[in-house]
Design a protein around this nucleic acid. Sequence first.
RNA 1: GCUCCCAUCGUCUAGCGGUCCAGGACGUCGCCCUCUCACGGCGAAAACAGGGGUUCGAGCCCCCUUGGGAGCGCCA
Length: 473
Amino acid sequence: MSQIVTRFAPSPTGFLHIGGARTALFNWLYARRFGGTFLLRIEDTDRERSTEAAVEAILDGLGWLGLDWDGEAISQFARAARHREVAHQLLASGGAYRCYASPEDLEDMRRKARLEGKPMRYDGRWRDRDPAQAPPGVAPVIRLRARQEGETIIDDKVQGKVVFANKDLDDLVLLRSDGNPTYMLAVVVDDHDMGVTNVIRGDDHLTNAARQTQIYQALGWDIPVWAHIPLIHGPDGAKLSKRHGALGVDAYRAMGYLPAALRNYLVRLGWSQGDKEFFTTDEIIAAFDLSAIGRSASRFDFAKLENMNGHFMRAMSDDELYKALIATLPHLPGGAEFAAKLDDHRRAQLRAAIPGLKERAKTLVELLDGAAFLFAERPLPMDEKAADILAQGGRAHLAALLPKLETLVEWSGPAAEAVVRAYAEAESVKLGAIAQPLRAALTGRSTSPGIFDVLTVLGREESLGRIEDQARL
RNA sequence: GCUCCCAUCGUCUAGCGGUCCAGGACGUCGCCCUCUCACGGCGAAAACAGGGGUUCGAGCCCCCUUGGGAGCGCCA
């Protein structure tokens, strides 16, 4: 088997959205699976809409997702001369011809086609016309002299065999009148020159594959193996657009998702291996194959992503998770302010709190939120539920408990627990009746990690201070 | 309109003619665990779009209908 070469070819007209990320992932996986090469090509031939910022966003997004490409990213625009060369080569061989039809002519064709209920098709008026008849002063385009009879067959790894009648495919433009290549030409030339063996992309390109096949044939080049994967839809089943769901991958980072979780989720959207849901990246690489990809579009479901992310967080070691949180801080809402407050003491507290926190968080955002009590300053603001707990007899318990806690020689979870339990027993109340007021006083909320863990992480001085603040009111 | 693709629980999916009165996961709802919230455990409700064939037998094959989607540019 020859060496596999795949590529991801985004156009830098905006951020890297989730659909593009999945396409990149599949290409990356396929290359990694078969020991091949994964290339990146920026399709920046549309100078009007391409921006440097978008290129940056795409590279950043791929980097964050862990999809490393081989070699330098290639700029399609920089290869325009080569595209022109190929167009002229085709012209010389008779595989293409100059077309002098004006935009108005084309508009007429379009109108007529619509009137007759037919799809717009270039009528080939210059296909066999003597160029001597060219109207003066009109810059021609170069069109492919496509086969008009027979069929063009796409043997697709995902879609199966798809047949297009050549009569339905017209003579596409290869080179614009301004001398710039079209996407169709550029893709074929670049994929060929880059040695791309497998083209994996969204199935919105399926009909393009037929047109590109014709170009390959005219050039006498080998046709790559096609794999057109189904698109992702938004939660409501409609096409993923900026209105709903089609966020840039940076947004997913800001929502606190882990790259490994997002990869797992994305690959399971359309690809499966029996009932297995969770995969390490190595497992996916080992198991991935195009033949297991379904052909129907799927919806993006945040609930499942979130659940999956929670699994990944819990599966991580405390150290890894801690590092991931710190590294992601600049991207999380409120993360920058949080980072500013991080001194050595607080880093240690945060690290110590991770085991209790990670059971309760599905995203890094939730993890950060759960850690908020560590950084709260006395006197703590109480949320509504916490205030309720304290108002309904909680304060009295705290006042009674405080001196007992103050006598503790050794400040530890088990020691504090012994005191609290003894007190609850003496008062003939359930542990919860004491734990909840404590929680309220210590965190300002009605939910938190185990209360004895909180006591430990906060330390003696801060804990007693917070309890006293509430006991005194 | 034309061409092409698709169709199993709300969602992602398993199923490659009999072992499926359809399995798993998320979500939902109970119960258990329990200092709260989570986690975890147990359990429940929940689907083969409809209609024709083919076959001894169809979720799996064929056709039609319906419903989704994509493409039809001198955009990519």
